[in-house]
Structure formats: C-alpha cells, structure tokens
Design a protein around this nucleic acid. Structure first.
Ligand SMILES: [Mn+2]
Ligand SMILES: [Mn+2]
Ligand SMILES: [Zn+2]
Ligand SMILES: [Zn+2]
Lengths: 144, 144
DNA sequence: TTTTTATCAAGAATTATTCTAAATAATAAT
DNA sequence: ATTATTATTTAGAATAATTCTTGATAAAAA
C-alpha cells in the first residue's frame, strides 16, 4: 500500500484561473508516485519519460503552481536545492547528513511542536516546522 | 543589557591549526554585537566600518570558519540568504513572513521538540530544529 | 633566514532559480 | 465560427548567493 493514496488531479482545484494542463498533471503524478522528495531536476528527469518535450522551466512553473494551490509541498533543507513532497498529511522531515535523503516522519499526537517554544509577545505564529537531521537507517547501520 | 555577554574572541579556539586573525575577530565581534541575524552581505557592510579593506570573500571565509569552530551559528530560512547568529544558547528561530526578520525564541523546558516526532527505526537523530513562521510583533500590530 | 602553511583579496565560476520574449493553446467575446 | 483575450510553454538569458582559483601577504616552523 502506497502512503499517498493516488489523488486524482482532476479533483485538485488550482484556483485563480489556473488551468489543468498535461504538464501539470504529469508533474503532479510524479510526485504522487514518489516517496523520496525529488528536486526539480529529478522531477524533470522523471517527467521526461512521459513527455520528452517538457522543459525544466515548465517543471519549475508547474511545481510553483502546485505548491501555491496546496497540491504538493516544498521542502527546504539548509542550502540544498528545494525538494518536493506529495504527502499532504501533516508530517515532519528527517534529513540524512550522509546521503542527503529526506524521509517523512510522523508527528506525535499530544506532543505538539508549538509547545516546545515560547512565542514572543505580540507575534502571530502561523506555522511550526520541526526538522530532524542525523543518519537515516541505511547510513546509520553502515560501519563508519 | 545585551543578550550576548560579549565573549572574548581570544578565548575562542578555532581548532585545526586555524589562526585568530584581525578579520576573524572583527566578524566575530560584529556577530556578538548583533541581535538581528545579519546575512553575509550585512556582516560585510558592518565589518567594513572597522576595516575598509576587507573583502566579501573573506567575510564568507571567516563566517564558515567560525561556524565550523562552533563560535557562531548559521541560520537558514527557506530560499533566502543564510543568516548568522551569535547566540550560542540553545534556542529556536521565528521568521517573520512580512519583513523577513529573524527573532530568537526560547525553548520551553520540559516540552522537548524531540518528543513531537517519531524517529524512524534505526535512524540516528542528531539535531532537532524548530522553526516558527508568522508575523513578528511589529508586523502583527500594523494594520495590514 | 629559509621554508612551510595559512590567510586574504579580487574576480571568475558555479548553480539553483527566476525572468524574458516569442510561440502555442485554451477560453471568452463578438 | 472569427476574433480577442488570457494563460501556458519553451529556450535561453539573467540573477544572486555562494564557492572556487590564483597570486599576493603574513604568520609559524625549521
Ligand atoms: Mn514529506
Ligand atoms: Mn539566533
Ligand atoms: Zn542516509
Ligand atoms: Zn516583521
């Protein structure tokens, strides 16, 4: 069973006069099938299998549109290229320091991240993000 | 009272045959005096007041060296330029979405961020980071 | 002093991303 | 159905933060 129960892109409303297009559909589909948080360049390579004529600029455009529409998420690690995530469930990310892979991690109900920090008086906190870095299971078990 | 009780750079050991130099001292001093998480370009401008001949490349080099030595921290927000922080106490960061300022926020003792996520079996978590984004007190009170 | 090593500075190179402009396609208006 | 409007795609140029290269300088070691 896939973690991302294949959402039908037809059901996704992009809003603001945005059209559903073959390119956007393909980019979205790649993300729904991916568990590994691909970069724009990786999405580009995967989409090219279905549509050889697509350009990298279009992939960037589609990713931006889908992120704005809330259909996918953008994941930023330190100084590395942005990665994209098709898992819309609330979750956090684990960044492996040796292989740079990104894993979804579940949030613990009851232990909210919002309770771990003290928001300054008068500030309006809108989003809490927890990131963990370390070694992924694969890299942790490797000797050295 | 400053939040960063002016650490004497002489007392900082950079390790690995790294020398203390006037440039590194100045960059460090700027960070100790700053509460606002300046970017490399901002550090550059501030350091130029004391040493007009310093170059941006050197500021980048000094910042990297100081970060590696653990004398300062690097703070990365989404796709924006890196910022640097002289506050070595454990703390988190609040990113204002309207003015892009970065504020230190305190960690709540007892409600650890590590408890809010479920680490994958076999992974070695080394660092937990909580980031909050929203509107800083100044921007929140402004009538839109 | 001579040799070695680290650092600095200027500018070139890199790289992820955004922008520009022209072509194409979809939608709306007539 | 034609025409006009608007959105989209594409290739390539531009941008911007950062890193790299290289030739001085300077400090430390021999
Ligand atoms: Mn994810
Ligand atoms: Mn800070
Ligand atoms: Zn790994
Ligand atoms: Zn603000």
């Amino acid at each position: 069973m896939s973690k991302n129960p294949l959402k039908n892109i037809e059901s996704i409303n992009l809003g603001g006069g945005h059209r559903m297009t073959p390119q956007r559909r393909l980019v979205f589909d790649v993300l729904m099938k991916s568990q590994d948080h691909p970069t724009a360049a990786e999405v580009f390579m995967r989409v090219k299998n279905s549509m050889d004529s697509i350009s990298l600029a279009t992939v960037y455009n589609c990713l931006d549109t889908l992120v704005s529409a809330g259909a996918i998420k953008q994941v930023n690690l330190d100084r590395e290229p942005s990665r994209y995530c098709g898992n819309l469930e609330p979750h956090a990310h684990f960044h492996c320091e040796s292989c740079s892979s990104v894993l979804d991690i579940e949030l613990n109900e009851g232990a909210e991240a919002s309770k771990s920090v003290i928001i300054p008086k008068g500030a309006k906190a809108e989003k809490f993000e927890v990131a963990v870095r370390g070694k992924c299971p694969k890299c942790a078990r490797r000797k050295n």
